[in-house]
Amino acid sequence: MSPEPPVSAVPAPATADESSSALKRRTFIAVSTAVGGAVVADGLIAAPSLAAPQEAAAAHAPPSGRVSLTVNGERHAATVDNRTSLLDLLREQLGLTGTKKGCDAGACGACTVLVDGRRVNACLTLAVRLEGAEVTTVEGLAPDEDDDLHPLQEAFIEQDAFQCGYCTPGQIMSGIGCIREGRTGSPEEIREWMSGNICRCGCYTKIAKAVEQAAGRK
């Protein structure tokens, strides 16, 4: 006797009650969909628009401006938000991270750079207002290929005028400005005119000595 062939699973036919129930469900879904579409079409329910957030963001986008300036001898042109500080332009767009962000409120001096030869707090200086300006950061003090340090950088090393080093770029840039302004007649005068630069490690005496040393080499 040959073996019986395998039996495939065949669903049992639906009963009259089950067919009626399935029909009712399909009818309900179809009617609900139609009613929902009609309600949205009549404006009773506002369907969310994917473009709405983008349009709102564009409508509230801050004004921007174009600025062209020279940084460490190299010309740069950039489009910036009118609220962008020189500090953020240097660090985020030009990649010059030697200038440090400390308080971001003009109170610590860590972001000090030279603009047209004068020291400024980069965090309080709007980049868009520097059209045609010449900016010098700590990266631009020794641009030669032989990597010779600026005299004040050498003095900081010789006087051991730093510990953690976070404030050092700002201290050096401020010290250069102090020397150029002729404010180095005495250690007391140096400390007075460098008082806008905070050193949380407390190296003030050695910083003043470094500025005094570099001023003597000027």
Rank of each mutant, 00 (worst) to 15 (best):
S2F: 07
S2M: 06
P3T: 09
S8F: 13
P13H: 10
P13G: 12
A14Y: 08
T15W: 09
A16L: 08
E18A: 14
S19Y: 07
S20H: 06
S21V: 06
A22E: 03
L23S: 07
K24C: 05
R25I: 09
R25S: 06
R25C: 04
R26W: 06
T27F: 05
T27D: 03
I29N: 10
V31L: 13
V31R: 09
V31Q: 06
A34K: 00
V35S: 05
V39S: 04
V39A: 04
D42T: 14
L50H: 10
A51M: 02
A51L: 05
A57R: 14
A58G: 09
A59E: 08
A59D: 07
P62G: 03
G65Q: 00
G65W: 03
V67S: 06
G73I: 07
E74S: 14
H76M: 07
A77E: 15
A77N: 14
D81W: 04
N82C: 09
R83Q: 09
T84I: 01
L86D: 04
D88L: 04
E92N: 10
Q93A: 09
Q93D: 14
L94K: 00
L94P: 02
G95F: 07
T97M: 08
G98R: 08
T99N: 04
K100M: 10
C103R: 12
A105C: 05
G106R: 10
A107R: 03
V113I: 10
V113K: 05
L114A: 13
V115W: 08
R118K: 15
V120P: 03
V120N: 04
N121V: 00
N121W: 02
C123G: 01
A127Y: 11
V128T: 07
V128Q: 03
L130D: 01
E131C: 08
A133L: 09
V135K: 00
V135P: 02
T137R: 10
E139N: 06
G140W: 09
G140I: 09
G140P: 06
D144Q: 07
L149R: 13
H150R: 12
L152E: 03
E154S: 12
F156C: 13
F156K: 06
Q159M: 15
A161V: 15
A161Y: 08
Q163E: 12
Q163M: 15
C164M: 12
P169W: 13
M173Q: 01
S174H: 02
G177R: 01
I179A: 01
R180N: 15
R183W: 05
S186Q: 03
S186L: 04
E188R: 11
E188H: 09
I190K: 02
I190Y: 00
N197Q: 13
R200F: 15
C201I: 14
G202P: 14
C203D: 07
T205S: 14
K206H: 14
A208I: 11
A210W: 02
A214L: 14
A215G: 11
G216C: 04
